[in-house]
Write a protein that binds this DNA or RNA. Structure first.
Length: 274
DNA sequence: AGACGTACCTGACCGC
DNA sequence: TGCGGTCAGGTACGTC
């Protein structure tokens, strides 16, 4: 599921519900997700007040008094309210009770998600976070910087943009959409993009992500906003999952094609993306 | 070091 | 109806 816009949407929903609240009970209904839960997770989170919630790349960071709770949603993770009268469902792996009576479930059928806990001081040394590249919205990210950074990358631009150590937060959908908007073929080597192309691509990446955040993300199968609403950016896809359709670009007679690039489905218009 | 393939897990969907 | 194959928004890790 979740790329930067979906994680941002979830963070905002969680923040509205959780900031200022205290976790009264935390229940783990299995010993692990993708990895084992961190040691003493229940003890370290229980009775702690939630100060703030932030997103870093595709990670949710929940700041408590002493620890930061890191959550990655993997492919199918989501948070949803759980009514007290209902028993948790099959894939409700973590149950959070708050001091105002609200109850949330972390639900993740495929269990590619994971959680970690780290002290405030050690946040920057966390093995998951320390490898991450810059945020696409970061002010220090410029076309010049990206042009230079990617000039040594001998992989298709599609693959390179998915690499979280280069730029963090993009996933399969928004890479396809950004490249279409920029008329750049996903097969092009990252090192072959000119500065002028980066001057088009970077603003377009930001444009696509912003529009998706404003739409509450994309709901294909699993993504839900924390309030249960679907995201609706999937109705605005230009290419993703659109193989066989006519290219929407004005004056383009091309047909959207699906190729596999580094084992991921890649949608683009061979006519206008060069 | 950098690039690539595969593993992890469940569910939905398709063709037979 | 049921079965097997394929695919899905992500990341880590082994191998070359």
């Amino acid at each position: 599921m979740p790329e930067l816009p979906e994680v941002e949407t979830v963070c905002r929903g969680l923040a509205a519900m959780m900031v200022g609240r205290t976790i009264t009970h935390l229940t783990l209904r299995r010993p692990n997700l993708r990895y084992p839960f961190p040691p003493l997770m229940v003890e370290r989170l229980s009775l702690q007040r939630i100060d703030r919630i932030e997103r870093r790349a595709k990670y949710i960071q929940i700041y408590l008094s002493e620890y930061v709770w890191l959550i990655h949603l993997g492919m199918s993770g989501r948070f949803q309210p759980l009514l007290h009268v209902l028993a948790p469902s099959t894939h409700d792996h973590v149950i959070i009770d708050l001091d105002d009576g609200q109850r949330l479930a972390y639900h993740d059928p495929r269990r590619f998600g994971f959680m970690d806990l780290c002290s405030l001081k050690e946040l920057h040394f966390n093995p998951h976070l320390k490898k991450l590249g810059l945020e696409p919205f970061d002010a220090e990210v410029t076309p010049e910087l990206l042009c230079q950074k990617f000039s040594r990358v001998n992989r298709p631009i599609k693959t390179a943009l998915l690499d979280q150590t280069l730029v963090a937060g993009l996933g399969n959908i928004y890479v396809c959409e950004s490249l279409w908007l920029s008329q750049i073929s996903p097969h092009r080597l990252a090192s072959s993009l000119s500065l002028n192309e980066w001057k088009v691509l970077l603003p377009n990446i930001r444009e696509v992500l912003t529009r998706a955040i404003n739409a509450g993300g994309s709901s294909l199968k699993d993504h839900r906003q924390v309030n249960g609403h679907l995201g609706y950016f999937q109705h605005q896809f230009s290419v993703y999952d659109g193989q066989g359709r006519a290219c929407q670009r004005e004056g383009c007679q091309g047909t959207i094609t699906k190729d596999v690039i580094s084992n991921r489905s890649t949608y683009y218009c061979p006519q206008c993306q060069r």
